[in-house]
Each structure stands twice: as C-alpha cells, then as structure tokens.
C-alpha cells in the first residue's frame, strides 16, 4: 500500500511578536485531504498561514511543503499553491483581464482559458474594476486566480467569513470539486466551523498560539460528546474525561473527550454528539480558565 504523503509538515514552529506568540506548533496535512484550521480570531491562524507561505520570517521550527523545506525553494514551491486571503489584495483599479495579463507573466502554468471559464462560472465580469466588486465577488475572483495555475494545494485564510450562506455554499461546492482530484489538497482556515464540518477531513484546532487538537474530523467528532447531568452530579464525572463544563439553570453540560467511555461509565446520564463549534468553544473556555 502506498504511504500517505504529507503536503504540509510543520514542526516546532515558533513566532514571537511580543504581545502574541505562536508557540512551538506542530501538525501535518496529508495529500488529498481537506484540512480545516480552526480557532477564534487572534488564535494564530493567519500567522501560521503567513509562515507556511514564507511571507513572514519564523523565529524557529521547520516547515515542509510537498516534502521540501520552504527554506530551500519557497518561491518555486508556491508555483503549486493557490492562495486565497480574507481580503482581496488586488488593486481596485484592476479588472479580471488585467489580472490575467499579470498572472500569465508570473505563473509558469497559468491557464488563461481556465481563468476565463471560472470567471464565467462565477458570473464575474472581466472588464469591470474589481474595486467595485462585492465581498463575495472578490473572494470568487481570488479563487478563480488560485485555481487557474494548476495548483496542487489551496491555502485559504477565512475565505468564507462575511459571506452570505448562499455564496458560502457555492464556494464549498467549488472546493469539493477541486479535491475530486486525488492529489489536490485544501488547507482552509476558518472560525465558521459549520462550513468545515461539511467538507473537512482533518481538523487542526489552534488557540492562543498553541495547537489544542489535531486529527481526523470524524474521529474528533466521534470521540467528543456533550454529557448532560444535574449540577450536583458534575463532581462525579472523572476529571480526565472533562474538557469543559457549562452550568445553566436546567443543569450542567460537560464536553467529554472520550464519548464511549463516558457512556459506559455514566449510563444514567445522556451523552449527545458534539458539534465542531461546541468542541471549539469548550476548549477555548477551558483554556481561559
């Protein structure tokens, strides 16, 4: 059986800004997967992506893309990466046609035909200045650029934030289409966990510059659960299982990290499946405490 190749490998990565530190993080993303990079605003998602693309200089640690260190040849490695940022970054006076002229002189594998096909598919005008585009159109334009140079990996920083559900759904379908090719990978940061639940295979959860949780999304969802009990029963629950607890007037809700064990140990209590968003909230609150 072929060994699964990691397209992203990050080991002990550190970046210290003084008031914020990305603290010794490590994770990997297998080829052909959709990896959701989740965390609240300011958790370190954008910093990690900027480090990954070698846009900012790291303090220490190692980053490998497609098995190669970014130190040796980051520019050439970026030829295979399509990037979508939370803000467009293209000049507002530029039209999609201008972007085509610029990009075809930058990317070796730029596919002009494909770019205009995407513009058509996304209903984007080619002669209109992109400064007049709505947020959804701007994101689509970035995606069209990212998909038009035969990239093997898409790295996206909050591509769906601030978009209405219809456009978000449209974009998720585009991402799904992209990963139909088995060597195509998506690394997608978002705090909208609902979107990631729909498409992600892997999840990396970052909080306060530290990796809190990483692994297969289904396994994470399967292993975690919300245990519902009375307030006076909270003490009975083994602390090794408890990630966080929230009290309400109706009782207590505890996020447990081993749903199967909790069900076995506390058959009288109800253990419900946890959503990615709940898992994120409980971990963040637990970290604050």
């Amino acid at each position: 059986m072929d060994e699964i190749r990691n397209v992203i490998e990050i080991n002990n990565l550190t970046k210290d800004y003084g008031d914020f530190k990305l603290d010794n993080i490590s994770f990997s993303v297998p080829e052909g997967s959709v990896c959701g990079f989740i965390g609240q605003n300011g958790a370190g998602k954008t910093t990690t992506i900027n480090l990954l693309l070698d846009i900012i200089r790291r303090d220490s640690g190692e980053i490998k893309l497609f098995g190669e260190s970014v130190d040796s040849n980051s520019a050439a490695l970026r030829e295979n990466i399509g990037v979508v940022f939370d803000e467009m970054g293209f000049h507002e006076f530029m039209t999609a046609k201008d972007l085509n002229i610029m990009m075809k002189n930058i990317y070796r594998n730029w596919d002009e035909k494909k770019f205009f096909e995407y513009l058509k598919k996304f209903s984007l005008p080619s002669k209109k200045k992109c400064g007049s585009f709505s947020r959804g159109m701007r994101m689509k334009l970035q995606i069209a650029v990212a998909l038009s140079h035969n990239a093997k990996m898409l790295v996206m920083d909050e591509p769906t934030s601030g978009l209405d559900p219809i456009v978000r759904n449209e974009m998720i379908n585009i991402f799904r289409e992209f990963v139909l090719e088995e060597d195509h990978t998506i690394f997608l940061s978002s705090h909208i966990t609902g979107d990631l639940e729909k498409i992600a295979d892997e999840v990396v959860f970052i909080d306060g510059g530290k990796i809190v949780l990483t692994g297969n999304k289904d396994e994470i969802l399967e292993s975690h659960g919300i245990l519902k009990c009375k307030k006076d029963e909270v003490e009975k629950v083994s602390s090794s299982l408890v990630v966080g607890c929230e009290m309400s007037s109706f009782g207590a809700e505890i996020l447990v990290n081993d749903k199967a064990s909790a069900e076995k140990l506390y058959p009288d209590m109800v253990v419900e499946p946890a959503a990615l968003e709940q898992i994120m909230i409980y971990y963040v609150n637990a970290g604050k405490r």
Binding site: N50, L53, I55, R78
Partner: peptide, 9 residues
Amino acid sequence: KVAGALPLS
C-alpha cells in the same frame, strides 16, 4: 501579502 504568495523570490 499577495506578492508574498506568488512564486517569486
């Protein structure tokens, strides 16, 4: 930021 993500040193 966009320039930093392009395949140019």
